[in-house]
């Protein structure tokens, strides 16, 4: 079940990554997977340990992903922040369903 939750997050974020980085599909797929593999388990872990700090955890995730997008995709800070924010917003909104 946890793998299923991870896949939902990964696919939804991949969709958004592809909107911004269309040049190399495989590279985007790989980077998106790496970024999610790093941030998702940590976010789940900290949310489980400190449920009250959800907002802080989410902000940390946005910041970590923003840094990784900036470094891996070699894009502008502004674009990296936007992608990170939108991707996490989308995956968080999906959890309402």
């Amino acid at each position: 079940m946890l793998i299923f939750y991870f896949l939902i997050t990964f696919i939804s974020e991949l969709f958004l990554y592809l909107l911004f980085f269309r040049k190399n599909f495989l590279q985007t797929l790989f980077y998106c997977f790496l970024i999610n593999l790093l941030s998702w388990p940590l976010a789940q872990l900290f949310n489980g340990l400190f449920p009250a700090c959800f907002l802080v955890v989410e902000l940390c995730v946005v910041f970590i992903e923003f840094s990784l997008i900036f470094l891996l995709f070699q894009t502008s800070l502004r674009r990296a922040l936007l992608v990170s924010f939108l991707a996490n917003l989308l995956s968080a909104c999906l959890s309402f369903l």
């Binding site: 946890l2 939750y5 789940q44 872990l45 949310n47 489980g48 340990l49 449920p51 959800f54 907002l55 989410e58 902000l59 924010f85 996490n88 917003l89 968080a92 909104c93 959890s95 309402f96």
Partner: peptide, 17 residues
């Protein structure tokens, strides 16, 4: 968005549960 995101907290299932 942060206001709405905070509602998603209820959906997160702690690891191992």
């Amino acid at each position: 968005a942060i206001f709405f995101v905070s509602y998603a907290c209820a959906d997160l299932i702690p690891p191992g549960t």
